[in-house]
Simulated assay, not measured.
Amino acid sequence: MSSLSNSLPAGGETFAQTSVVGGDVPDYFALLKPRVMVLVIFTALVGMVVSHGHVSPVIATISLLMIAVGAGASGCLNMWWDADIDAVMTRTAKRPIPDGRIQPNEALAFGLVLSVGSVLVLGLAANWLAAGLLAFTIVFYAVIYSMWLKRATAQNIVIGGAAGALPPVIGQAVVSGSVGIESLVLFAIIFIWTPPHFWALALVKAGEYARAGIPMMPNTAGPASTRRQIVAYTLLLAPLGLLPVALSFGGLLYAVVGVLGGLGMIAFSIQVLRNREGEAEKRAAMGMFGFSILYLFVLFSALLAEHALGLFRAVV
């Protein structure tokens, strides 16, 4: 395996690798960011089940698969462009491109083929509105976020979070052929959830982001401002998470989960605000990061259970 050249390339440029051509199947699968794909499939499925309409199980399965492939394609193109950044950050240095297991041009071709293929198949299997939304999501993440926002502004996560929030909207478009209030509310929840989720991690990894030249909030506005913004976004997220109840597509189970989860998010954000030094700061930030994942998963799971298992009871 060849080593990286001493001079790191700009985004998207080729590394000085000579001994490795092509990678194994697990390496290509890693390019798709499989953990992100799981979240995309899950939130898109919730967008489907809250929709007014019906789609056959076959079409639904194909659509979910194509949404997942499109998300994977976005991740692959992101890794291709960010290979120089990944090489200098410990949590990403072992990704297939900076580690030399896959050539950048191979990753680029792989990502482009998956992008085009996923959009075309989704359009033919479901409808072209859903396909168009998937295409927009891929372009937004790979081009607008990865190639521009990520290196240009500390608001990269705030604006770029729109890409990660779109799967429920695509899911509803698959079922109903339109975009309704249900998926837009789910979009808003994920969109507001994203900054406190990632900024908690950024507080811990601020040094690595600085070394990679990424203007994350702790490095531009400072840790104190970042903590305050985490609290502010969390205070907005907690009531927003209950909006499905107010709009009568979230029931009693969802209401209970939303209230308890929202209070938990606020409690963790306050811990982040209070613990500002050493190991206590790291524990608080990572606690917030971990709980935020659990919050979103349980919140959407409650909605999925109510609709998919017939447990729905609107709270009047």
Rank of each mutant, 00 (worst) to 15 (best):
S7Q: 14
L8V: 13
T14W: 11
S19D: 14
V21I: 12
V25E: 07
P26K: 12
P26C: 07
V36Y: 05
V38T: 14
H54T: 10
H54N: 08
A60M: 06
T61G: 11
S74L: 09
L77Q: 05
D82Q: 13
T90I: 15
T90V: 11
T92H: 09
A93M: 13
R95A: 02
P96I: 01
D99I: 12
P104F: 06
N105K: 15
A109D: 09
S118R: 00
V121W: 04
L122I: 05
L133C: 03
Y141S: 00
V143S: 02
S146G: 10
W148A: 13
R151C: 02
R151Q: 05
I157K: 04
I157G: 02
G160P: 09
A165Q: 00
L166H: 03
I170F: 07
G171E: 01
S176C: 07
F187I: 08
A188S: 03
I190T: 04
W193T: 01
T194M: 05
K205H: 14
A210F: 10
A210R: 15
R211L: 15
R211F: 10
M216Q: 04
A221W: 09
G222V: 11
R228A: 15
V231L: 04
L236R: 06
L236A: 10
L237R: 11
A238V: 08
P239C: 12
P239E: 14
G241R: 05
L242H: 00
L243H: 07
L243P: 07
F249L: 04
G250N: 03
V257M: 03
G261E: 09
I270C: 10
N275S: 02
A285S: 09
G287W: 00
F289W: 05
F300K: 03
A302T: 04
A302P: 07
L304D: 01
A308C: 01
A308N: 05
L311Y: 09
R313T: 14
